Simulated scan of single mutants.
Amino acid sequence: MEFRPLRAFVEVVRQGGFSQAAKTLFATQPTVSKAVKQLEEEIGLPLLDRIGHRATLTAAGEVVYRRGVKLLAERDDLLAELAEIRGLKRGVLRLGLPPVGSSVLFAPLFALYARRYPGIEVRLVEHGSDQLEESLRAGDIDFAGMLVPTAEEFDYAVMRHEPLVALLPAAHPLAGRESISLAALRDTPFISFEAGFSLHRIILEASRRAGFEPDIVARTSQIDFMVELVGAGLGAAFLPRIVAEQRRNPALRLVPLDEPGTEWIMTMAWRRGAYLSAAAQAWLALVKETRGA
Rank of each mutant, 00 (worst) to 15 (best):
A274M: 02
E194F: 04
L174A: 06
A144N: 05
P260Q: 08
E40N: 06
P108V: 03
E205N: 12
Y275A: 09
I191H: 08
G235L: 11
A144V: 03
R291I: 10
R116W: 02
A22H: 03
L97H: 09
A60T: 07
R14F: 10
T262K: 07
A280Q: 02
L252S: 09
R291W: 09
R54S: 13
K23S: 10
A279F: 01
R67H: 07
L39W: 05
R123Y: 04
Y113F: 15
R272G: 13
A170V: 15
S102M: 11
R75C: 02
V243I: 14
G17L: 01
P163H: 13
A237T: 08
I85W: 13
V100H: 08
P214T: 10
I223G: 05
A218F: 06
E289S: 00
Q131G: 07
E205H: 05
I85R: 15
Y156I: 14
I43A: 05
L78G: 07
A157Y: 04
R116M: 01
L286S: 12
A237I: 03
Q38W: 05
A218S: 06
E81H: 11
F238T: 08
F190M: 05
F225R: 12
I51T: 14
R247I: 12
K288T: 12
A107Y: 14
R66Y: 03
T56K: 10
S198L: 11
R50E: 15
M1C: 09
V64T: 00
R201T: 15
P98W: 00
A27P: 01
Y113L: 03
E84P: 12
S129T: 14
G233A: 10
A27Q: 10
V92Q: 06
V92S: 03
L47E: 05
L199G: 09
R50A: 10
A157K: 00
E194M: 12
I265H: 12
Y156V: 04
F26G: 02
F106Y: 11
A218D: 04
P173M: 02
K70W: 14
D187H: 06
R14Y: 09
G91S: 07
A285Q: 13
Q38F: 02
G68R: 07
P149K: 00
G17F: 12
A73D: 06
R86N: 14
D77C: 01
P256T: 10
E84G: 09
E245C: 04
E153T: 12
L88E: 14
M268P: 11
R291L: 07
V12I: 09
E259K: 01
Y275Q: 05
T267Y: 00
Q246S: 12
R54N: 11
P260I: 02
I203G: 07
Q15N: 08
V10R: 13
D140K: 02
A107P: 00
A183T: 11
